[in-house]
Design a binder for these strands. Structure first.
Lengths: 360, 360
DNA sequence: CACCTTCGTTGGATCGATTCAAATTTTTGC
DNA sequence: GCAAAAATTTGAATCGATCCAACGAAGGTG
């Protein structure tokens, strides 16, 4: 139970050391930041004074103001902080960011907040050299808030097409095509789509009108990819049910109930996230519907869990860690430019997809 | 490819705004920090000037120096940064820390570094109000480095018994007892221990001498707990092999090879971490040794993975998230005291433990 | 009308360091 | 022994804000 704040009330400053050692602040400062340029005898005297007074070393707060660079990058989201450690996608992304930061010795500051007001404050007052934005939800607002700071930033998972912001994204249309082609080539002709949000606060079956006016372009593009390819195989996409989920268990299950209540249930499900796909796997299994014998499922994202679920999930893998790495480097070696970058995705075939029942 | 750093080279300061708006810097400051105390007309004028000049708002670097508080807590480790997102134990801990930080609006700064020198620098220059230390490895050094900063800090997983540092730990002896008693009560009498490190850079079978001089007291205490309880059941602990692993696949497998090469292989394995236990499960399965029919395994930690592995693991669960929450609160509402806190662990019985073959 | 509040504004002091041109001391060269 | 060169040290300026005592201008009161 000893007290930590022993001794003088006021913390010791560099100036105190300088006075005690009988040197100027300039010299005292040099002792800590460039010891080689001060004479050994003086150096020892100053260090002794520092020890005697219990000096904690130059306060980074003071140094920061002069130096200007914090040497840390901020990662922001509108989700609670635990999102970074819970969500599989976020985790792989953070691992990529970590790698780039480790390589240059930079730190990571996690920024988030439950309510809007705190988020704004947290972004305004974050001590960072730049931001990486996780725009899973409330993207535009996050971008707007961050822009105010006039620091470099990169948007990830940005749902909208805004050329004034730097962003790293994937080719969603190509990903959609890859998934659809894989299933169509296996022989499937009856499809259902479990989609991510097209706009805020909507769920349920989606109309073409809603697709056209989608505010999340990522969702729209994936669907576009699906439909383009399905059309090529002669599937009437107007008849393919598209159910908008909230990327969680409840809404995904509701979607499955709806889809399988149909007279002609699908033999293949195109899920826009692995999370949705894995809920589907679970639901189908509980219903005694075998995957892939009765129904095939293809996910999207390529999170690690998708490789070890039952059955292992066929999915469209994003280069998640690479996105993180690039985003971090964009901030770390910022060159003053605004740039959108689009990375390729990859079809990873596992055990959740196979030929439709009629063929097998 | 538009340039972000348009206009004037030097960033705009609050003083520039004040001059442009024809008010004192005091007033200009108030417009941003306490707008209600400045007359509306003046307020608008200053805001207009800020807009016109493209002012990014009060720079947190400046504010920080005055305010003194960063409103962020640093989490440090000697592992690379990705450790926070990869390691299951760390992730649950971080989730607990996140929760406490979210509740008060504080941020989290991740601090780490590959090499010793960078670690020192990163700790010295981290902009935080206090530290939470993950002492999984290089604990003493980390503590020493952090102490220099003279900021509040809490050590987690601290291997040594140092009363001058605040720490939150668990009752390792009780945990060891719980695990051993569970297996002994099931009827097991032939045991083997797969342990964590007793000292740096050692692995292999452990001698009583090594246990006595262990520098990691957590490891020692778990073993003490195992042995105390086993003795109560009449087991000759001198004959129980204790194999020191590095908490990774390779060394754990080596340990298993050693242990099962014995003439009288164990019917029960006491593993000092879930990680080790899960490697054991895998190894045993590959050997065709059924768990728990042939051999029972009890882990330690209670990470989420332990509940979903095959078979689900019986383990000693630490209140990991709670430890994180408490650690964060210790920093957030620091009261100047140094305190060691010990939390209780809990036996969680799952499918990896059962009666030994002779009985069943 | 003089006097006291109240409200807003001012500008200097401060937070804790780093930087750099100039001043000073020490070395070196002859 | 002395001047020039090299090595150190100094101290003022700066980084970008917030705080606060003091001051001035309205507004209210007896």
């Amino acid at each position: 139970m000893a007290s930590l704040t022993e001794g003088g009330r006021r913390p010791i400053r560099l100036a105190d050391i300088a006075k005690a050692a009988g040197v100027s602040h300039g010299t005292a400062s040099n002792v800590f930041s460039r010891p080689e340029i001060v004479r050994e005898e003086v150096r020892e005297r100053v260090k002794a004074a520092a020890d005697a007074l219990g000096y904690a070393g130059p306060d980074p707060k003071g140094r920061l103001l002069r130096a200007g660079k914090v040497n840390a990058i901020g990662v922001a989201t509108t989700e609670p902080l635990s999102y970074f450690f819970d969500d599989p996608f976020a985790r792989v992304m953070m691992a990529g960011i970590s790698e780039a930061c480790d390589a240059t010795g930079a730190g990571i500051a996690l920024v988030s907040a439950g309510n809007e007001e705190k988020l704004a404050w947290n972004i305004q007052s974050a001590l960072v050299d730049g931001f990486i934005l996780f725009c899973i939800e409330g993207g535009p607002r996050l971008v707007e808030l961050t822009r105010e700071r006039k620091l470099p930033f990169v948007a990830l998972e940005l749902g909208s097409q805004d050329d004034t912001v730097s962003a790293i994204s994937i080719d969603n249309v190509a990903g959609g095509r890859l998934a659809a082609r894989h299933l169509a080539e296996l022989g499937h002709r009856r499809f259902a789509v479990l989609s991510l949000a097209f706009a805020d606060d909507s769920t349920g079956l989606v109309s073409p009108e809603q697709v056209r006016t989608a505010s999340y372009t990522g969702t729209r593009d994936r669907l576009l990819g699906y439909f383009e390819e399905l059309s090529r195989f002669g599937v009437d996409t107007a008849k393919v049910p598209v159910y908008e989920t909230e990327n969680d268990k409840a809404s995904t299950r509701a979607g499955l109930e709806t889809i399988f209540a149909s007279a002609e249930p699908p033999t293949a499900i195109l899920a826009m996230s692995d999370r949705i796909a894995m809920v589907a796997l679970e639901w189908l299994n509980a219903r005694g519907i075998a995957v892939p014998r009765d129904v095939s499922v293809v996910g999207f994202d390529g999170v690690p869990e998708a490789a070890i679920c039952e059955p292992p999930l066929t999915t469209i893998a994003q280069p998640i860690a690479e996105i993180g790495r690039r985003a971090a480097r964009r901030i770390l070696d910022f060159d003053g430019t605004v740039r959108r970058e689009t990375l390729d995705v990859e079809l990873v075939v596992r055990a959740s997809s196979g030929p439709p029942p009629s063929i097998a």
